[in-house]
Design a protein around this nucleic acid. Structure first.
Length: 537
RNA sequence: GCCCCUGUAGCUCAAUGGACAGAGCAGCGCUCUUCUAAGGCGUUGAUAUGGGUUCGAUUCCUAUCGGGGGCACCA
């Protein structure tokens, strides 16, 4: 990454141990890249940030004057700006060379090898919806987030296992309630969707207990869900983990003993409680009910423990809906008590906030139980997978999203996803049209590309690996979505002002190669986000 | 009452503690004999409120006032 090269040079100059940050400033009058390191240094040096920045810049200038230094190949100009920023302008060759890298690395461009740093083995669990109905729009948010995040983390060199936890235990209350619904003895989950599923397995249900009936019905729902996730959402899970299977082992029992041994449990009113208040929870929680049945808590704790102990993941990432947030301190406390977590990040929980669905100016209440909810399936039928993915991914999970159905549908042409796709399709279309001419992009001389628009586009392309890294470190796919919009804008600007088919064939070849590089980055972005590249628009 | 998010432009959302707070949509005015006008250019417009920490606060702390969600021997 270009950014890292700059950091490398600064490290040679700065002996003090301070973090060196280099970033792309918002305003281009502050340079291609910029650093605030003088502010950090001024404290230890007891000089003003401006003085500090000036002395660093003087050293940079001296080194830059030596024609053999690599540094001299990097900086065109460095400048100090009040109150203490150092701004860098890089030579065109830096970006011209980087554009060549894109064409060389192709679909690998943007990825990082985890050499030097430890490549983590990460378990990423998401969706994990209860098998009591179809996936909701809220599930969709977690689904797309998890899928894109997996792609991003893989690009920076981690090994990701995508996992779906199925809450299908016969002994659980939820499955029993589902069974009641299946047998017509209760209406907890009564929906049209389930009624149809029940019809399909009427014979098998006869004479079954509630737990068994619920389990059977759950299997039908899961079959559907799995199919929907793979075929419609285009998400591929590595592991589908069944809660019921956990009940078949002795692991829950063993965990109970382990906690007892550590003195972290006590009995009260016939139930076994975990002292979760010792780990930051607001109250203690039941592990084993007075009926002798384990709660979801101990089952889940067993499951999470299994990720670290048996399967040897170095990090587990869970994506939850907002309604589960209260559960975090309990579960985290349990894992801490067992000595599993070295630091908080080992078990990373990402909470996605609610999606409010607005229809005709009014909020559509979504409840599985009420049965009048708008499903993810319906949403995708209405606005398409690309738009759905893009729209959900462009916002931070912390945002309480308002999703206006009418708007999404009616204005779908103006949805930002089309803006980005349009730019990519334009690239493709230019390539299709011109690649049959005498232009030879494979022998492109990028040094010929030196107009403002050429350079702006190349600079934007060169940021891609840096954006991937930023997105990975912050677990934030929305960074890539925002970047894709910036790139589309930069490309459209380029398109307005520069042409590929110019008289000078060498220049034309270079331009065509630049278009190819742009398309490559677009394709890589689309792969991360899971959206398609239309052939025509 | 306690806990988790959250309050930025007319609307939906951005901004690892950085410089003049950015986009899209909506509005207004330009722009297609040229590789896709689903494009480009210009323009109007915002950090809920009061303290604090800092060279620097939309960001961190605190109080107040709003909004969403959660507080089960459900999962």
């Amino acid at each position: 990454m270009i950014k890292d090269e700059i950091i490398g040079y600064l490290k040679q100059l700065i002996k003090e141990n301070v973090p060196i940050e280099v970033f792309v400033p918002d305003n281009e009058k502050f340079g291609h890249y910029s650093t605030n390191v003088a502010f950090q240094l001024s404290k230890t040096l007891k000089k003003s940030p401006l003085e500090t920045a000036n002395s660093i810049n003087e050293e940079l200038k001296i080194k830059n004057a030596v024609p053999t230094g690599r540094q001299a190949e990097l900086f065109e100009k460095t400048e100090v700006a009040s109150p203490g920023f150092i701004n860098f302008w890089l030579k065109p060759e830096v970006f011209q060379k980087e554009t060549g890298e894109i064409l060389k690395q192709k679909e690998k461009y943007g990825s990082h090898t985890a050499a030097g740093k430890e490549s983590k083995k990460i378990n990423l669990e998401f969706i994990s919806a209860n098998p009591t109905g179809e996936l909701t729009i809220g599930n969709g948010r977690g689904a797309f987030l998890g899928d894109a995040l997996a792609n991003i983390l893989e690009l920076v060199g981690h090994k990701i296992t995508k996992e779906y936890y199925i809450n299908d235990a016969r002994a659980s209350n939820q499955i029993k309630k589902l069974g009641e619904t299946a047998l017509g003895k209760g209406e907890t989950y009564k929906t049209l969707y389930l009624e149809q599923k029940v019809k399909g397995i009427k014979k098998e249900l006869e004479g079954k207990s509630e737990g068994e009936a619920g389990y059977l019905l759950a299997q039908e729902v899961i079959k559907d869900t799995k199919n929907f996730i793979e075929k419609e959402l285009k998400i591929k899970f590595d592991v589908w983990f069944s809660e019921e299977q956990l009940y078949q082992t002795s692991e829950i029992e063993e965990l109970k003993k382990q906690l007892e041994k550590k003195g972290l449990v006590y009995e009260k009113e016939g139930a076994l409680w975990f002292k979760s208040t010792e780990f930051g929870d607001t109250e203690d929680r039941v592990l084993i009910r007075s009926t002798g049945e384990p709660t979801y808590f101990i089952t889940d704790l067993t499951y999470q423990l299994d990720k670290f102990v048996d399967k040897k993941f170095s990090q587990a990432i869970d994506i939850w809906g907002a309604d589960h947030h209260g559960y975090e301190s309990r579960l985290r406390g349990g894992l801490k008590a067992l000595g599993i977590l070295k630091n908080d990040d080992d078990f990373k929980i990402i909470i996605t906030q609610m999606v409010r669905l607005i229809k005709d100016g009014k909020e559509v209440r979504m409840s599985k139980r009420a049965g009048d909810y708008f499903t993810l399936k319906e949403l995708i039928e209405e606005i398409g997978l690309d738009a759905a993915r893009f729209f959900f991914l462009m916002y931070s999970p912390d945002t309480h999203m308002d999703f206006d159905l009418g708007l999404a549908k009616e204005k779908s042409v103006k949805n930002p996803v089309y803006y980005v796709q349009y730019a990519a399709v334009r690239c493709q279309s230019i390539i299709n049209k011109l690649q049959t001419t005498n232009y030879k992009p494979q022998t492109a001389n990028f040094n010929l590309l030196d107009t403002q628009e050429d350079l702006n586009l190349m600079r934007m392309l060169a940021r891609f690996p840096e954006e991937i890294m930023k997105a990975a470190v912050n677990y934030s796919p929305q960074i890539i979505v925002r970047y894709s919009m910036d790139l589309a804008r930069e490309f459209n600007n380029f398109y307005e002002k520069e042409k590929v088919s110019v008289e000078d064939e060498k220049l034309a070849s270079a331009r065509l190669a630049l278009i190819q590089a742009t398309l490559t980055v677009f394709k890589n972005i689309f792969t991360i986000l899971g959206i398609s590249l239309p052939e025509k628009m």
